[in-house]
Design a protein around this nucleic acid. Structure first.
Length: 369
DNA sequence: TACGCGTGGAC
DNA sequence: TGTCCAAGCGT
């Protein structure tokens, strides 16, 4: 079935497109990067590892993903292992990688693969698309890389490469449809998975955002943007909005044994399911902000301040503390707990909260022994 | 369609 | 040093 479709696709390819595909695959054979999740020549790709890497790589650099990928695949070698894990353990292991909905969806997806697909990843783009956390790019990438399906995996790299190759000057995201169509024209019947990876490698190493290395690019002579001298100006992107500032107070409390008071955030939304130190609301604008503590105590300022920039706002946290030494949890709503200092390093703390802990306790608390 | 959603590296 | 931005997805 898929072979027939691929042959049709191959017949429909122009000789010019076939040449481009071959040039890129030749370049890939000579320059492919060695990455932990990538099958070596002759090896069969493991769908579980391909999926895991693709989720982690969403909006995240290869260098950052490396150690997380090794930690996850060591601890949970198969999708069945991951499906059996506790969500809290997954979130702890994900802490620091960001976009925590990915971790929740990763866990939900593993469960779905076990419950609905007998523990094997589906091998079509359409079925993959129905899994939690798997969108159009990731479905195409897994279909191509893990199952050798003819699919156009269009990520930020591919958008850049293709918009330059064809000198597409329509601003993103409006140009997505056109870029996808142009990419599909280039996907070869043979080695679609290698082609997908080659396209992304090209974007990551040569066809980079600033100062692209056109002189050693396998597509140098075909690239319309280079011909027109506009490669670095593409792709055109819609202007970004500036980030507002939000202000809040953190209320630092300790128990007699030195444990610190923390609470679990709501399951959904910003930092969903992660731990935080009790705080006021995170309001926009210093004047309007309600900076009241979540419970009464003798709060005084520490004169310490933490700043952290998220995707869509900048956060300024004033750190307050109390002399009160607690025996039990103060009156509260939600999931609050005392966390021993030596446990902080292995808890699901987002980076902003790690900064708070470091300001109060010193950087030694995150030195894993 | 547009927005909410993290982080660390490169420059 | 601030800005940009990376293998996007869900709503």
């Amino acid at each position: 079935m898929s072979v027939m479709l691929q042959e049709v696709n191959d017949d429909n390819m122009t000789s010019k497109n076939k040449l481009l595909s071959r040039q890129l695959l030749d370049w890939y054979d000579a320059h492919a990067r060695v990455l932990p999740w990538r099958a070596k020549p002759g090896e069969t790709a493991d769908p579980y590892r391909v999926w895991m890497s693709e989720i982690m790589l969403q909006q995240t650099t290869v260098a950052t993903v490396g150690r997380y990928f090794l930690a996850f695949t060591s601890r949970w070698p198969s999708v069945a292992d991951l499906a059996r894990a506790e969500l809290d353990d997954v979130l702890r292991e994900w802490a620091g990688l960001g976009y925590y909905a990915r971790a929740r969806n990763l866990h939900a997806c593993a469960k779905a693969v076990v419950a609905d697909h007998g523990g094997r990843f589906p091998d079509t783009e359409q079925e993959l698309l129905s899994l939690p956390g798997v969108g159009p790019y990731t479905a195409a990438a897994i279909a191509a890389i893990a199952f050798d399906r003819s699919a156009a995996a269009v990520d930020g790299n591919v958008e850049r490469v293709i918009s330059r190759l064809s000198a597409i000057e329509t601003p993103l995201p409006g140009a997505k449809t056109e870029i996808r169509a142009r990419t599909l024209e280039l996907v070869p019947a043979q080695r679609p998975g290698d082609f997908a990876q080659a396209l992304m490698d090209l974007g990551a190493t040569l066809c980079i955002p600033k100062r692209p290395n056109c002189l050693i690019c396998p597509w140098m002579t075909a690239c319309r943007a280079r011909e027109l001298g506009v490669a670095e100006a593409l792709p055109v992107k819609a202007p970004k909005k500036q980030r507002p500032v939000r202000n809040a107070r953190i209320f630092w409390a300790e128990r007699a044994d030195g444990a610190v008071l923390m609470r679990r955030r709501e399951e959904k939304g910003l930092l969903g399911g992660m731990l935080e130190f009790p705080s006021s609301g995170w309001a926009t604008g210093k004047e309007k902000a309600d900076l009241a503590p979540p419970y009464a105590s003798g709060w005084v300022t520490t004169k310490k301040q933490i700043e952290h920039t998220f995707t869509h706002f900048h956060l300024v946290l004033d750190l307050q503390q109390t002399d009160e030494v607690f025996d039990d949890l103060p009156a509260h709503d939600g999931d609050w707990r005392w966390v021993a200092r030596h446990q902080l390093a292995t808890e699901a703390l987002p980076t902003a909260m790690k900064k708070v802990a470091v300001a109060m306790l010193g950087s030694d608390v995150f030195r894993r022994v």
